[in-house]
Amino acid sequence: MKVNKPDIVDIIEENKNLIYKIVNSYCTDRNEQEDILQEIIFQIIKSYKNFDYKVKVTTWLYRVAFNITISHYRKQKTRKKHVVAMPSKIVAIDEDVTNEYDERIKQLRAFIQEFDPLNKAIVIMYLDGNSHKEISEAMGISLSNVGTKISRIKTQLKKKFKQ
């Protein structure tokens, strides 16, 4: 029996915040964020036809978003735009009005920035409320390793806020 897959645009629309949070946690430049978001969405659409639901949709989205964002974060040269001559951006980002932000949100963002790229991914997924199994499936590490790392991350975050 053939299962109808939901429309990919609906999936992206429902999970856009997941992607925003990941990109925002690795990159602070607005223009670069727009470029990364564009590439993530492109890769999601491109790979959706082969998506077989062996993992959750969100796990699949986390993988794509983290892989592209971390790769961009590590790249030193200017990234070539992968989408040819798009007339406008798929995601447009307004200028952040920082004085509206809670100081503690700024602090949380700053603390998350201090983690290395791979541990940052675990922090983000943990804060999003994902189970150890989901984090393990997205990252490709063992369940017990996820547990060890989350325990360490919780301690570190508490310590940072206490200082």
Binding site: Q43, S47, N50, F51, W60, R63, V64, F66, N67, I68, I70, S71, L118, A121, E137, A138, M139, G140, I141
Partner: peptide, 10 residues
């Protein structure tokens, strides 16, 4: 394939 696990692709 960006849909593979993060460790694998990195």
């Amino acid at each position: 394939d960006y849909t593979q696990t993060v460790i694998n692709i990195q």
